[in-house]
C-alpha cells in the first residue's frame, strides 16, 4: 500500500504563505481558519541568527492519535496512501482529536465537525499534487509515495539531511523537512 508523504525544502522556502492561501481557496476553508501555516523558527542572537522556515500542516501520521481516540470512527486512515481523513457526517465535534494532536493541526469547522489537511485527496486521486504543492512559487514542496523507493520524495530523503516534527511523540509523521 502506498504511504503518501511530503518533503519540504526549508532552504528554499521563503514563508510566503502561498500554500496557505491555495489551501484556503481550493478547499473553501472558512475565514479565520487554516489547514496549513508557516513557522519561522529563529535561533541565536542578533546578528548571529539562524532561521528555519517551515510550511506545516497535519503530518498524516502512520500512528495517528486522532484516529485512535475518535469515539465514532469518523477519524480514519484512508485506504489510499494512508491519508488521515474525517468523515464529516460521523463526526460529533467532541474535540478529542483536536486535543490529541501534538501538532495542533485540527480545528472544529463552524459547521461542527473536526477539520484539517486532507493532502487534497480529491486532487491526488485525479493524479494532481495537493494544492499547496502545486502553487508553491519556490518549488520547495514535494508530494509522493514514501513506500516507493523510486519516488521523488524517497530519493530526496535518501540524499538530503532532514528532520520531522516531534518524532518522539511516536506518531510516525509523514512530513519531512530538508535542511
Amino acid at each position: 500500500m502506498a504511504r503518501f508523504g511530503m518533503v519540504i525544502d526549508t532552504t528554499k522556502c521563503v514563508g510566503c504563505m502561498d500554500c496557505v492561501v491555495a489551501c484556503k481557496t481550493e478547499n473553501q476553508v472558512p475565514e479565520g481558519y487554516n489547514r496549513d501555516w508557516i513557522v519561522q523558527d529563529v535561533q541565536g542572537k542578533f546578528p548571529t541568527v539562524e532561521m528555519e522556515i517551515r510550511s506545516e500542516r497535519c503530518n498524516q501520521c502512520s500512528n495517528p492519535p486522532c484516529v485512535s481516540c475518535c469515539p465514532t470512527g469518523a477519524s480514519h486512515i484512508h485506504e489510499i496512501g494512508g491519508v488521515v481523513l474525517v468523515t464529516k457526517d460521523e463526526c460529533i465535534g467532541c474535540k478529542a482529536c483536536v486535543a490529541s494532536c501534538p501538532y495542533d493541526a485540527r480545528f472544529i469547522h463552524p459547521d461542527g465537525y473536526a477539520d484539517k489537511c486532507t493532502f487534497c485527496i480529491h486532487r491526488v486521486e485525479k493524479g494532481l499534487d495537493p494544492a499547496c504543492v502545486s502553487v508553491c512559487p519556490t518549488h520547495c514542496m514535494y508530494f509522493g509515495d514514501l513506500d516507493d523507493p523510486n519516488s521523488n520524495v524517497s530519493q530526496l530523503l535518501r540524499s538530503r539531511k532532514h528532520h520531522s516534527l516531534m518524532p518522539e511523540a511516536g506518531t510516525q509523521p509523514n512530513i519531512f523537512y530538508l535542511t
Binding site: 532552504t11 521563503v14 546578528p47 539562524e50 532561521m51 528555519e52 522556515i53 512559487p137 519556490t138 518549488h139
Partner: peptide, 28 residues
Amino acid sequence: QVQEFADAVGDGSTVIVVDPRYSVAASK
C-alpha cells in the same frame, strides 16, 4: 524574481545580504 531567487538558492549560489534587518533573504 522570487522564483529565480529560490532556484539560485537551491543551486547553491552564494548569497550576500546587506540589511539592518535579518530578512528572509538573509536567512538564505
